[in-house]
Nucleic acid binder design. Structure first.
Lengths: 339, 339
DNA sequence: CAGCCTTTTGCAAACGATTGAAACCCCCTA
DNA sequence: TAGGGGGTTTCAATCGTTTGCAAAAGGCTG
């Protein structure tokens, strides 16, 4: 009794019957005598028999496991995505294996390798900030494992994606600032290799164009890590330069918060002199002072949708559809821009 | 070529040799001719061969998977724990399967059943708020699967735990309030079936006793869900009752925030008239206004420690040690209590 | 050239569950 | 009593990998 858990074999031995009979008795197959069935079921219950999923996986060539590769679990947005994935997967009888890349390319590649080794039925991936080489992902596609990207999609790969409308979200945010009277809007941008960041930048640019505000490249500053201190430093630098600034659109809320700190430190009133809008609607955004306007991304829905998509692909024989599902964002106006 | 991934069999067939030889060649076993080895290794690389972890699990009776059952992934504290677990597990070559109970007993039981069916090598569990029946956990112990509790431990079960020193943390928080001159301290408590909440309450009571402040039960109010609105309502009620109140110790930061809202709404200055301390040091706590003093819990370390413990148990033949690892908390003084 | 040793390779069983096909038992009938 | 037919049950193979043991091949010696 080392391995603790009871197997069909144990039950068969105790009842002096064959494994086949036990298996069939447990699955209500025809051709098993009621006596035998009853004895088997009773013993199975008594010993709390659970089918060995490993053995089943091997036989059926199907693990009922979805692999998830995510930059970090501690980001509020990503944790809501995980929650959505898990809920949907569990509902359909799947388990979820999670690996975090910690925004490192190598760990992302290792994680994918580990999950492929575990023969997950499908892979949900949000690439790391570092990732630009796509070999590890191309292998997955070539070997025929369904894969769906979420949030941070990858272009030119034969896989579906679930993203939010970053372009439109950014456009809405900037248009909102413009309507509040802003004419000199800083964009604290994210790293260019992430498509989501490029899209947000495009939204910023389009909104300016559509409202006939000339684009000035010096108003776009890259905050590579999206951290508060980084953004605060960048913003301080801009404020000290003497440029005219009356609005800030940050690539994410942490950067937005950094901007607010910088602005507060030099004593400029928010939102009266400078209005600020972030992106992602983090949990803290409604709680800070001034509360931060932001673009809400439906993380939980994204997780569910990504899981739904991968399950469809797993259960269909056809190759990937290569669809892109775009979820709507929502502008949440709070004190930092409400004037 | 349906299943995509290459097996030892495929390689054996292509080279017209047996599986045994391929297997040995790949593992640098003695007694394989250099010619054969070279051919095998080259083909394995060419086809990107990865050992089938499922087959290995079945043969070795070991999955190299750790199961995690957690109330919710979206709580900042829990997501840091997950991060710690994942980092430690990956370092040791383990994968992590995560199930969230969403604070529901039944889903917790189902999750454990699913993970046991998947034959995880060990289980890390933080029980749901609803859980009081322990059958599902006792089964795990009886069947010999190593299990370690984290944060929310379970008493009277043969399993190790990793917790933070909730008692001491609460004691520190309340003592801090007393030293700031508070004499009438409200405790917004958590549900009594969670040991962590009982410990915090005990810390509150001991601190009062040690400083010769008489305990008044009406100053302890249960906020079952630890939500902002709930706490705000409770706090408003207390304030309206006309009781003398000059301090609040909340069971968690969300409740602390609710208290702050209530106090601000009736126009009482914080921290001058009423000082507030929360628990958990959530991410938002430093960002709100006034910033919320809190007790910091080392979530990431807890995750790593829990993973470390379970790995030790998995790799040792002896039965569980039933150790309780207590991690230190830290009082973070911020504006809500700094006067 | 027979016998022996070394080197290299293959066979078969095992892990747990499933399933098509074959076998068994018992009873009835011709 | 042999044969047929239902109702039950068992056998054997399969999934991918490992590994103890047996076997084959080749070379060397007496």
């Amino acid at each position: 009794m080392k391995s603790g858990q009871v197997t069909i074999k144990d039950i068969a031995k105790e009842l002096n019957i064959s494994c086949s009979t036990v298996s069939r008795a447990l699955k209500d197959f025809p051709g098993i005598s009621p006596t035998t069935r009853k004895a088997v079921v009773e013993l199975a219950n008594k010993y709390n028999y659970r089918p060995n999923a490993i053995a089943l996986s091997l036989r059926n060539q199907k693990t009922n496991v979805i692999g998830v590769v995510i930059p970090e679990t501690v980001h509020f947005f990503f944790s809501t995505v995980i929650s959505g994935i898990e809920d949907e997967a569990m509902k359909e009888g799947y388990n979820v294996m999670i690996c975090q890349s910690n925004e490192q390319y190598e760990r992302e590649a290792d994680s994918i390798d580990a999950l492929m080794g575990a023969r997950v039925d499908g892979l949900l991936v949000s690439i790391s900030r570092e990732t630009s080489d796509l070999q590890h992902l191309e292998k997955v596609v070539k070997e025929g494992t369904p894969m769906v990207f979420f949030d941070r999609l990858v272009e030119g790969m034969n896989a579906s994606s679930v993203i939010v409308d970053d372009y439109q979200g950014a456009y809405d945010a900037v248009e909102h600032l413009i309507k509040k009277g802003c004419k000199h809007i800083v964009h604290l941008a994210g790293p260019d290799n992430l498509i989501i960041c490029r899209k947000r930048k495009e939204g910023y640019i389009s909104a300016l164009e559509d409202h006939e505000i000339p684009l000035d490249e010096s108003y776009i500053v890259e905050c590579r890590f999206g951290e508060e201190a980084e953004a605060e430093k960048a913003m301080t630098h801009l404020l000290e330069s003497g440029m005219a600034i009356d609005g800030v659109f940050a690539n994410n809320d942490m950067a937005g918060l950094g901007a607010i700190s910088a602005i507060k430190k030099v004593g400029i009133p928010i939102p009266e002199e400078i209005a600020v809008v972030g992106f992602s609607n983090w949990q803290f955004s409604s709680l800070v002072n001034p509360s931060l306007s932001s673009i809400s991304q439906p993380g939980y829905e994204m997780g569910r949708e990504a899981a739904r998509l991968i399950l469809v692909e797993i259960n269909s024989k056809e190759p990937s559809k290569r669809e892109v599902t775009i979820l709507d964002t929502e502008l949440i106006v709070r004190d930092s821009s409400n004037r």
